[in-house]
Design a protein around this nucleic acid. Structure first.
Length: 143
DNA sequence: GCCAACGTTGGC
DNA sequence: GCCAACGTTGGC
């Protein structure tokens, strides 16, 4: 299977009490709505079809639990009255064989400048190809 | 439950 | 345009 050379990688956060990985798997394709931060919005708007994202459980769990694929690029978030916020559609690709916890990420010098650590409140974070590969290896993920 | 980081609001 | 007050996120 060929991959676009320009594929980008991301991490999206969700509180499992609000929307969990299990719910993502159950519905397969889900609109990623509710982002109300301008930097996160910019990241959503930058996503392209075929980009991959880590699915991270914030607050409870605090670990990367799965991988999703962007299957629809940025469009107006229907949950925003103003119409000026953006969402994308994401599809469940698979669960991490071994979820990677925030504690592990913080303890790993190779991930010292990972956006998840550097900007802890940002809910949509770009991931470099190097960090992506590193985290996939740590998770036992064979993409 | 507390607190740090950070975004937003509103007075001036 | 500055800045203090306040609200939210999210880790601990």
């Amino acid at each position: 299977m060929s991959q676009p050379a320009t594929r980008s990688y991301w991490l999206v956060k969700s509180e499992p009490d609000a929307f969990s990985w299990d719910e993502q798997v159950a519905s397969d394709i889900e609109p990623w709505t509710g982002v109300r931060n301008h930097q996160a919005k910019k990241n959503l708007a930058t996503m392209k079809m075929g980009d991959l994202a880590f699915f991270y459980h914030s607050n409870k769990g605090r670990e990367i639990v799965g991988v999703v694929e962007i299957v629809r690029e940025g469009y107006p978030d229907p949950t925003a009255e103003s119409g000026s916020w953006v969402c994308v559609d994401v599809k469940a690709v698979g669960p991490m064989p071994r979820p990677v916890t925030l504690a592990e990420i913080k303890a790993d010098p190779a991930l010292a400048d990972f956006g998840l650590v550097r900007q802890s409140r940002l809910s949509v974070v770009p991931v470099s190809a190097g960090h992506w590969d590193h985290l996939c290896r740590a998770a036992g993920w064979k993409g």
